[in-house]
Write a protein that binds this DNA or RNA. Structure first.
Lengths: 324, 324
DNA sequence: CTGAAAGCGCTTACAG
DNA sequence: CTGAAAGCGCTTACAG
C-alpha cells in the first residue's frame, strides 16, 4: 500500500478511501491510484482489513447432523451450491463447518465464536441441536424450522405441512382409498409437519396402522414399507416423506410383488435427483431449495446489518411423474 | 489479551508464547494464564494473528467445472466431506470456491491470491483449466491428473487406466465377446485413461465402432448407448466410464428391450451412490475417494511446509454386483 | 524464563 | 478533498 501511495503520489489514507467506495476522493486522485494499483499489482491484505473492520466477509455453513447423513442427501448439494452462489453475489465466502460429533461441535463453536466469520447458516434436520447453544451472539439463519428455537432464530423453510397436504390430496383424487404414510424422524420438522399434513387430509381415516416412522434413509424407507405391509396389507398408496426413503419403498414393493403405480401409488417429497433416477420416476413434492438458499443469505445479511430475525416459509409444488 | 495479562500478572508477550506452544513459559505462569483465560473467556483474534503470521489456517476448495456439473456428482460429496474432515484434523478450515464462469474465476483468483488462504485443493475434471494460471505462487494440489500440468502440479489420482483394465478383463472373463465402451470427455483424465485401459485389454479388438464418447451425465450415457446399438448391435457388454452414465445406459438398454446382465453386461466406474440405487445394482470400479481426500490434504500440507510437489496414484478395486 | 518494543497492513475519525 | 496519526490485536526477535 505504501508503494501504491508513492507511485500515485497520495497518502495511504486516500488509497484506502479509494478502495472503500471512493467517497471523498477527487477524480484525479482516483485515476492516479487506479493506475498505480495496476502498475504495482497491489492487493489488499484481508487480515489487516478485517482487524480494523471487525468483518471477515465469510460465513460459516454449519452442518450439524449427528450421523453426517446430510452428505448423502442430494438436497444438500443443491443447498450448498445455492448458498455459495448467493453469498458470492455479495462477495462473501462460505466456509464448511461439520459439527457431527461433540468434539466437532466444540471445534466449530470455538471457530465461529472466535470471530472468524460474520454469521452462520445452520443446516440440520434434528431438533435439540446442541450446537445452537454454543453459538453466542453471532447472526444465524437456520434451514428448516429449528424445532425448539422457532422463537429466537431466523429461518427459512419449505411449507412441509402444505406440501404433505398437496400430495395426500392428490393421491386421494386419483382414487386411492387406503393412503399410508412413511414419516421422517419425529424430532425433525419434516417428520412432524409432513405427518401433520397427511393427517389434515385423511381426518378420521388417519389410523396409526397407516403410519410407519422412517429415518430419511433408503434402507429406512424399505423397512418402513415392510412394516406397513404387515399392519395394513390393503394399502393402495403411500405418501413417503422423502424421495430417498421412497426409493427404498419402491425396492420393497418390487420384492413384495406389488406394482407401482398400478397396485400401490407412491408419492415422495423433495424432488431430489433420486426422484428421476429410480424406476418408475417419482411423483413428488418439490422443495424450492435454490430459493431457500437465496432467502437464507438475504436473511443473514439483514441480520448482520442489525435487523431483527425473520422467518420465511416458501410454498412447495407437486411434480407429477410415474409413481402415482 | 490485555485483560488476561492483567489478571494473570504477566505481559502480553508471555500470554502469546503460552498460546503458541508454551515454549519458554514457566509452569507457574502457564497455570496463571490458563486460569486467567478461563476467567475472562478470552479468545484470540484470528485476524490480528494472521496479520503477523501471514497464515490464515484456511484452504480453498476450488471447484472449477464450467457447467458446475460436479455438484450433481455424488463423488463430489464424498470428496468434499473427506477433505473437510482431513483438514479439520489439522485445524484447518475449508472455504468453498466455485469457479465456473470467467467472472467466478476472476473472483476466486483474486480471493486466493489476496492472501485469504494458505493453499488450494483443485477439483476439476477438464483439462486446459484456465483457473490454474490465475493462481500464482500458492500451494495447490489437484484432484485427478491435471492434464497439461502434470509436471508442475502436485496431484492425487485413482489409477484410471488400471481400473479400466480390471473391468474390461473381468467382462471378458465372464465370457463376453463384444465389449463396447462409453468414455468420458476426451479432455478429462478419466476420459483418456479409462479408454486407454479398455484398449490395453482388447488389443486388436478395440475397434472404433465399439467406442462412444460420453460426457459423464446420465443422459449422455443414455444417448451414447443408443449410438453403440447402431454401430455395434451385436455388443454383449459395455464398460461405461462413470456410474452416472451407466445409469443412463441401463435406462437405454431397458427401452431397447435388452436385459441386463443376461443380454448385455454393464460395468461402471466410481462406485458412487448411484451404483446401488439403480436396478440392477452396478458392478463397478471403486475409486478410493476418502483416501484421495486425505492424501490431497497431506500433500498440500507438505507443500505449505516448503516441500516439492508430489504425485500420488491410488489403486482401484472391482466391486461385483448385479449388472455384470 | 520474561517484558518492552517494534511491526504486521490496513481503516477512520480528525483537523485542515 | 486530503494527510498525519492513532489504533485494530496479535507475534517475535531482542535484551536482560
Amino acid at each position: 500500500m505504501e508503494d501504491v501511495a508513492a507511485v500515485a503520489g497520495v497518502s495511504r489514507g486516500t488509497i484506502s478511501r479509494a478502495l472503500n467506495g471512493g467517497r471523498n476522493v477527487s477524480p484525479t486522485a482516483m485515476a492516479a491510484i487506479r493506475k498505480a494499483i495496476a502498475q504495482t499489482g497491489y492487493v489488499v491484505n484481508p487480515h489487516a482489513r478485517s482487524l480494523v473492520t471487525q468483518r471477515s466477509q465469510t460465513i460459516a455453513f454449519i452442518l450439524s447432523e449427528p450421523q453426517e447423513r446430510l452428505f448423502e442427501d442430494p438436497n444438500f448439494n443443491i443447498l450448498l451450491h445455492g448458498c455459495t452462489q448467493a453469498l458470492a453475489a455479495h462477495d462473501l465466502m462460505l466456509v464448511m463447518a461439520i459439527a457431527g460429533s461433540a468434539a466437532d461441535r466444540d471445534r466449530v463453536g470455538r471457530y465461529v465464536n472466535g470471530g472468524h466469520v460474520d454469521g452462520a447458516l445452520l443446516v440440520s434436520t434434528h431438533s435439540g441441536n446442541p450446537i445452537i447453544d454454543e453459538l453466542r451472539g453471532i447472526p444465524i439463519v437456520a434451514c428448516g424450522t429449528p424445532l425448539g428455537h422457532e422463537r429466537e432464530l431466523a429461518y427459512v423453510a419449505a411449507d412441509d405441512r402444505g406440501g404433505a397436504r398437496q400430495m395426500t390430496r392428490y393421491l386421494r383424487e386419483r382414487g386411492r382409498t387406503v393412503v399410508a404414510t412413511i414419516t421422517g424422524p419425529p424430532d425433525t420438522p419434516g417428520g412432524v409437519q409432513r405427518l401433520a399434513g397427511w393427517r389434515d387430509v385423511l381426518g378420521a381415516d388417519a389410523s396409526d396402522r397407516l403410519v410407519a416412522i422412517g429415518d430419511y434413509t433408503r434402507d429406512g424407507g424399505d423397512a418402513a414399507l415392510n412394516r406397513l405391509l404387515a399392519s395394513a396389507p390393503e394399502l393402495d398408496a403411500v405418501f413417503v416423506a422423502s424421495d430417498l426413503m421412497a426409493a427404498g419403498t419402491l425396492a420393497a414393493l418390487r420384492r413384495a410383488g406389488r406394482r407401482v403405480p398400478e397396485d400401490v401409488a407412491v408419492g415422495g417429497f423433495d424432488d431430489s435427483p433420486v426422484a428421476t433416477s429410480v424406476q418408475p420416476a417419482l411423483t413428488t413434492i418439490r422443495q424450492p431449495l435454490l430459493r431457500i438458499s437465496t432467502e437464507m443469505v438475504r436473511l443473514l445479511r439483514d441480520l448482520i446489518d442489525g435487523q431483527p430475525p425473520a422467518r420465511v416459509v416458501l410454498p412447495t409444488e407437486l411434480i407429477r411423474r410415474d409413481s402415482a
